[in-house]
Amino acid sequence: MTVTRTASTNWQGDLPSGEGVVTFVSSGIEKTPVSWPARSEKPNGKTSPEELIAAAHSACYSMALSAGLGKAGYTAEDIETQAYVDFKAGTGITGISLNVRASVPGIGADEFAQIAEATKTGCPVSQALQSVPISLDAALR
C-alpha cells in the first residue's frame, strides 16, 4: 500500500527578506513560519527545510530502530534520536548526524551497535538522503 503525505509552503517576497508558511496538509498540525534568515542565521521562532528534514529523520530512525530491535527479539523501553542537519549557504546540506540513546532490556552493547548501524542504512529517510554523509553515535543508557 502506498501512502502519500502532503505539505505545502506559501512564500511571499524575495529570498533575503521574504517569509513563508509551511502547511502540514496531511496531519493538520499547526502551520509553521519559514524564512531565509531562519535557515542561514538564527531560527527566531521559524523553521527551515533542514529542521524539517531533521524531524523526519529522527522520527523515521527511531521507528526503524524499534522495528530492527523487535526482529531481534527485543523491545525498547525508550529510544531518543536527535538528528543534526548541517546546511551551508551556497553548498546545501553537507552532512547529517544521528545521536541515539536507548534503553533496551537484555541486549548487549555490541548487538545493539550492529542493529543501530543496520538501521542507519535501512531507515527510509536515510535511504532518501543517501547522497549526504550520515554519521551515527548510538549507545545504550
Rank of each mutant, 00 (worst) to 15 (best):
I96V: 15
E117M: 05
Q114F: 00
L15P: 00
G68K: 09
A59M: 06
D110P: 01
Q127F: 09
R101F: 04
G106K: 12
A67E: 12
L52P: 10
S26D: 13
D110V: 11
K71R: 07
I96N: 08
S131I: 14
R5D: 03
A83W: 06
S103N: 08
A76K: 11
S97W: 04
L98A: 04
M1S: 13
V125D: 10
P124E: 05
S126R: 04
L129E: 00
E77M: 14
V22H: 07
N44A: 15
V25G: 03
T23A: 11
G95I: 09
K71W: 00
E50M: 07
G108H: 13
S48V: 01
A64Y: 10
T94D: 06
Q82G: 07
T32Y: 05
K120L: 02
A64F: 11
A59S: 14
A138K: 02
I79E: 10
M1W: 03
L129D: 01
D110W: 08
G68T: 03
T91C: 02
T91F: 01
A59K: 04
Q82D: 09
L129I: 03
G45Y: 14
G90A: 05
S66N: 13
K42Q: 15
E19K: 14
I107K: 04
G106R: 12
P124W: 03
N99T: 08
T94K: 05
T81I: 04
A89S: 08
K88E: 13
G45Q: 14
Q114T: 08
Q114K: 13
M63H: 02
A109F: 00
Q127V: 15
R141P: 00
P105V: 02
T4V: 09
S17E: 12
A56V: 00
K88C: 02
V132E: 11
A116H: 09
M63E: 04
V100E: 12
L136Y: 09
G20K: 03
E77L: 15
F112P: 02
E19F: 06
S35F: 01
K42D: 11
Q130G: 08
T47E: 10
M63Y: 10
